[in-house]
């Protein structure tokens, strides 16, 4: 019995060392990617960084620091101040999960750049779980910071696509018609559409009394998103038939650009 008690007391005396060992972060949280998906100059998009760990960690939070000119945004569901893992804030040990964030690359950014990604986490859940794992106040949280490369290349494909190429109206009508456009890979600023030479009997007006029409969602046409521009067609003097209306479409990417387009107007 005395020997047993001695062993017990000996083990108890080792308690501080054992607790200190438990306080060491052995979760081995680490990023499994060194670069994000490539972005184009002028593109804004969500990208992801993957993480894994040997042990389960909780309350995951990630923030990203990017070079000047590159804007970072986080999910609105978390208030916009940080991002977390997809589906939960827990990274289960031995599994992989990712954090997503939005990067807006300026048109002037032509080369790859690094972002600093910092993730913080709790090694145990609530106070009871921390106590159960022998983790004191000082060891409850951990963090890891990695540098991830964001490859950048030129935008591929056309700067935008004109989705609406044909509009039908009734003779003598006066109303707004919507022309739909979808952005290419990069964001286009100051996107404007103006109708050129008009057939006799047709007048065109623009929203707000302006000289051209901009997308309904804002002045620009974001990459890979669809928006509409409104044209008021006053056809009170236009005979039934099919007309080709010339369009002047302008935007600013790396520099201001204007191109010509057409829309077919069918008057019934």
């Amino acid at each position: 019995m005395a020997v047993l008690l001695g062993a017990v007391l000996g083990a108890t005396l080792l308690l501080p060392a054992a607790t200190a060992q438990a306080d060491q972060d052995k979760s081995n949280v680490r990023a499994t990617t060194t670069s994000t998906a490539p972005l184009a100059s002028g593109e804004s998009a969500w990208v992801a960084v993957s993480w894994t760990a040997d042990q389960t960690v909780h309350d995951w939070s990630t923030t990203v620091t990017a070079p000047a000119g590159v804007a970072v945004a986080y999910p609105t569901t978390r208030g916009g101040g940080d991002t977390s893992l997809y589906g939960s804030a827990t990274l289960v040990g031995a599994t992989t999960d990712f954090t997503a964030f939005r990067l807006a690359v300026p048109h002037a950014q032509r080369t790859s750049f690094p972002v600093t990604v910092t993730s913080t986490y709790s090694r145990c859940g609530d106070n009871g779980q921390c106590k159960d794992q022998g983790i004191g106040n000082d060891g409850r949280t951990g963090s890891v910071t990695v540098t991830v490369t964001v490859p950048v290349g030129p935008a591929a494909g056309p700067p935008f696509t004109q989705d609406t190429t044909r509009v039908s109206i009734t003779a003598g009508s006066d109303g707004f018609q919507q022309l739909s456009f979808t952005g290419g890979q990069a964001d286009l600023a100051d996107f404007r559409v103006q109708v050129g030479a008009l057939p006799a009997g047709l007048e065109v007006a623009y929203p707000g009394g302006r000289t051209a029409s901009s997308p309904a969602g804002g002045s620009g046409l974001p990459g890979r998103r669809t928006d509409q521009v409104g044209l008021r067609l006053v056809a009170t003097g236009l005979a039934p038939g099919t007309y080709t209306l010339p369009l002047s479409i302008s935007w600013t990417a790396a520099h201001p650009t204007t191109t010509n387009g057409t829309v077919t107007l069918v008057v019934n």
């Binding site: 047993l4 008690l5 017990v8 083990a11 108890t12 080792l14 308690l15 054992a18 607790t19 060992q21 438990a22 052995k26 040997d54 042990q55 389960t56 289960v92 040990g93 031995a94 090694r123 145990c124 106590k131 159960d132 794992q133 022998g134 983790i135």
Partner: peptide, 23 residues
């Protein structure tokens, strides 16, 4: 009981310690 107490103290009273793989 003493042994169990000592083990509970050293392991934090949890069947799975923080050092064990979560799987």
């Amino acid at each position: 009981a003493l042994v169990a107490l000592a083990l509970a103290l050293t392991t934090g009273g949890c069947a799975a310690t923080a050092d064990e793989p979560s799987t």
